[in-house]
């Protein structure tokens, strides 16, 4: 074993892996939130969340976002009406969308149209027609029309569990201020939870850069410890149950990635 970790870099990598493992064992508090029922009844501490989704590949993604149980949620979907014209038409037909007035235009992505649903069950949905396929610019356009202070930007092709937004709201409600809370991201950089003022001060998602460049960003999976699905997304069909072995298996799954990277260091 000693022969593998000879250089300083490899020793540092091993220490980082051990520290990450220790953090995994330490951060079990969020398991308690898994049994909280308050997130499905009312807005926790008045926390409202705007879920921003850019260029979804199908209407099923939008449908899964609308399944969110947390009441104070808004779903803002940014679509390029040129390259995804069929998807836009499908959404307009399914959710009875009507065109409404657009607000001030963001600098990165002009908004061609804004749609809201006439039907009450889908009043949380907003669809933005943007003139870009670039995901960060589309997210900027979605942010310009969102109305809550907490933004959850979906950065990859994942679907959310119905309780995911409630869990995120509970995490935000544990901070000092619901307007100026510290941002955090999912372990695999699929989700970014950020306060609106922070993303505006950074210059938008286009200028925020890769999440890996923000080392102080907390990671959701370490905080929430939700079992990840096979595709690695923030998605699960199972209600988390507290068993020691379940936690241990989750930690070993996380540790596997670190071990594989250590093997690569050696070779």
């Amino acid at each position: 074993m000693r022969a593998i970790f000879t250089t300083t870099k490899q020793r540092t990598a091993r220490l980082t892996a051990l520290r990450a493992l220790w953090r995994q064992f330490g951060c079990e508090r969020s398991r308690l939130m898994a049994i909280s029922g308050s997130a499905e009844i009312d807005a926790i501490g008045g926390v409202g969340i705007s879920v921003l989704c850019a260029n979804p590949h199908s209407a099923a993604v939008v449908e899964s976002l609308l399944d969110t149980r947390y009441p104070s949620t808004e779903i803002v979907v940014a679509i390029n009406g040129d390259s995804q014209a069929s998807l836009l038409q499908q959404l307009r037909a399914t959710y009875s969308l009507v065109e409404v007035n657009t607000p001030a235009q963001p600098s990165t992505a002009p908004i061609r149209g804004l749609y809201r649903s006439r039907r009450r069950p889908f009043r949380r949905l907003m669809v933005v027609d943007v003139a870009t396929d670039d995901r960060p610019s589309a997210l900027d356009a979605a942010e310009a029309v969102a109305s809550y202070d907490a933004l959850v930007a979906i950065l990859a092709e994942v679907t959310l569990h119905p309780s995911a937004i409630g869990r995120i709201a509970a995490e935000i409600a544990c901070t000092e201020s619901v307007v100026r809370f510290p941002s955090f991201a999912s372990c695999d950089d699929e989700l970014l939870v950020i306060a609106r003022h922070q993303i505006q001060s950074e210059g938008g998602f286009a200028k925020y850069g890769a999440l890996a460049n923000h080392p102080t960003l907390n990671r959701i999976a370490e905080i929430l410890a939700v079992p990840m699905s096979e595709n690695g997304g923030f998605m699960t069909d199972e209600r988390p149950t507290y068993t020691f072995l379940n936690l241990l298996s989750l930690k070993i799954m996380k540790c596997k990635k670190k071990l594989l990277s250590l093997i690569k260091c050696k070779t």
């Binding site: 209600r239 072995l245 379940n246 070993i252």
Partner: peptide
Amino acid sequence: VLLLGRYLSRRGM
């Protein structure tokens, strides 16, 4: 251990 943990978790559920 992972498989056993998942089995027990699903069994518990």
